[in-house]
């Protein structure tokens, strides 16, 4: 009987362990910014899904291209229909790892994040600086990086070539909470 309790407690512990090493957000923030001589284009996505494993430092991020909000609604329609083809490629994903995650303490630390970014069905390895802020209730990741539109096979027609930058700045801010 003693053994049986032991199993029960272990099972409870096991669940607890699981619960504590995964951190998740459903309301992560990712935005992109394009600067050109004609206009600046900015789009925000406040519905980014991200899950972080604190045991391994591994991270998986996913967002819906349709959830990017623009200043003009027509831009959003064109972005989805003509550029990123959201009906074919609804999601963008990132799957990677935060370097030296186990050495991070409760303060703000700068480290590196490496992984594969998939947009418009094309994969690209991304390596960038990330600021990790660990506290009891959340783990915050912030940073930005640049991507070339050409790497993702997104075609820009000549007529709007001056309106859209060839290199886009992507910023992220992800507030992960313990995942239950």
């Amino acid at each position: 009987m003693k053994g049986f309790y032991f199993i029960l407690i272990s099972a409870f512990l096991a669940q607890n362990l699981n619960a504590q090493d995964k951190y998740l957000t459903k309301e992560g923030f990712i935005s992109f910014f394009s600067h050109s001589i004609v206009e600046d284009i900015k789009a925000d996505n406040n519905q980014v899904l991200s899950v972080l494993d604190t045991q391994t430092g591994k991270i998986a991020i996913q967002l819906l291209m349709r959830s990017f909000m623009f200043k003009k609604t027509l831009m959003r329609e064109h972005f989805n229909e003509n550029y990123v083809e959201s009906y074919k490629y609804p999601k963008a994903t990132f799957s990677g790892e935060i370097k030296n995650f186990d050495e991070l303490n409760e303060e703000q630390t700068e480290t590196e994040i490496i992984g594969i970014l998939t947009v418009h069905g094309k994969e690209k390895e991304i390596s960038t600086k990330v600021i990790v802020n660990v506290s009891e209730s959340e783990i915050i990741l912030t940073g930005d990086f640049k991507v070339d539109i050409a790497d993702f096979n997104i075609k820009i027609p000549a007529i709007v070539a001056n309106n859209i930058a060839k290199t886009i700045k992507v910023s992220f801010e992800l507030h992960h909470k313990p995942y239950k």
Binding site: K22, Q47, L49, V51, K58, A60
Partner: peptide, 14 residues
Amino acid sequence: SQDLEAILEQESLE
């Protein structure tokens, strides 16, 4: 531990 993607699928909004 390998199943971060599975969690994403489960939590996915779409």
